[in-house]
Design a protein around this nucleic acid. Sequence first.
RNA 1: GCGGGUGUAGCUCAAUUGGUAGAGCGUCAGCCUUCCAAGCUGAAUGUCGACGGUUCGAACCCGUUCACCCGCUCCA
Length: 505
Amino acid sequence: MTTPYSMEELVSLCKRRGFIFPASEIYGGINGFWDYGPLGTELKNNLRDAWWHDMVHCPPMGPDGEPLSIVGIDSSIIQNPKVWEASGHVGGFNDPMVDCRESKSRYRADHLLCLGVKGDTSGQIYAYIENDDDSLASAQKKLEKYVKRTLSSEEIDTCALTELSVEELAITVGPDTKTVGTLTEPRQFSLMFDTTVGATGGEENKAYLRPETAQGIFLNFMNVVDTMRVKVPFGIAQIGKAFRNEVTPRNFIFRSREFEQMELEWFCHEDEAQQWYAFWCDYRKKWWQQMGLTTGNLQMRQHDSDELAHYAKEGCGTFDIEYKFPFTDPGYGELEGVAHRGNYDLSRHTEFSGKKINYFDQQKNERYTPHVIEPSAGLSRGTLALLCEAYTPDDRPSKVFMKFNPRIAPIKAAIFPLVNKNGMPEIATKLHEEMRKQHVVQYDAKQSIGKRYARMDEAGTPYCFVIDGDTLEDNTITVRDRDTATQERINIDQAVAFLNDKLNQ
RNA sequence: GCGGGUGUAGCUCAAUUGGUAGAGCGUCAGCCUUCCAAGCUGAAUGUCGACGGUUCGAACCCGUUCACCCGCUCCA
């Protein structure tokens, strides 16, 4: 089944109803950046708060039935630049790229290898893609055609494309072309944002905006162990902005250059890591379902070994929780990655800083560097998934409504006087003032009741309380349900309890 | 980064072969209204994405640029 609506419709509603706007729009916008409007901010904050509550304040029970121990931190976006050398990001996020002018293809330079005849510096060189048998066969075929004979493996010289000189690159044939010299020189694509610390500037003061929040947690591992009386296994959580100079920002807020992450680093003994990995994969999928992603648009996917990140190679892999967005349909896009990072990060920081970063288990009398299971979720992407999931075309007057889970809906309820006279506004205003002490609610007395319902449908408000003529007689009001557009009548004194009850379901 | 497309009011879109911008919806005000964008009256809103050029005159033609969408590419 394909998505019954287009991304343009959703983007249009987000703009129209104040969820998301293009950043610096009056200046023509800026590629890869978006602003959250009033409703989008509420929505995102609700998702963020739900995560913090469910992961830090009230985490799930562990496999042994005991509550998990998780604490939160909020680390600086800018850290000592050595952090990113130790983490591998300075190396790993600086991929040299090569473009082919003829085939319009782009390759990672360090993923290209080259074939040539041994000892022959005047002939042609043929590039092929690493670990791609077809590409290798094609390159060898082209080389043999060029020298007009079959070559034995002893006669063929292989080297990395990055080792070629400018002259050699000029006589190189790209993987997907037959002419020489179509490949550009390898260019660095730095995925990390540079900035300068200090007013005087200068290269020696260069620093980076963090490309992930995780490192701030590893940096503070010993601080937390020394101050919080935590025992392994335990977790440290953090929510915050991260920055990446994506080559191609695309698909609304899905791949933006400034985004928010919700990351947990779960520290455990190596022997238990596999068990915790399975535990977190399972729990995190359930969590997303609880947030309202329940229609089968979620899937779990184990990474292939060749797509593992540099930090995950030591461990046992990465599981992606993916969502079927309208722009990925029928494919899926990553919402959260649950990675087994091994003890890569703590070990690297031990090595680069020279500081002791480990844990001593008094019971076992064992000192070790904990392994890490990392459920790393995208708050921005999660917000987008909630928007995509909620968007529900319908034949009602608004033609569409946002079917948010009440727990994460930006506005929980609206209070209307049926008509703006006869004492109804006074009662409605009083109810509104009572309700807003506990929940985000809106009062609206303007225009017809139908328009007010329609507005709330597009904002995704799950309940509308209406004070009508009967209220004056018997103290009852109607509650209109967003999803069914049906009403029930309750006593006005029970309205707050009614809403509390619905939001806690 | 490449190829294609789009850019006019908050949103969706018009504007005859170049003659200094309109509609619907929404928004706002008033009246009316006892339950689903109802009705009546009125109002506000655009440097036609930006810059430059051609022209007596450009939303329209040309160039550059920016943003968004689609397809490649990339994706910790």
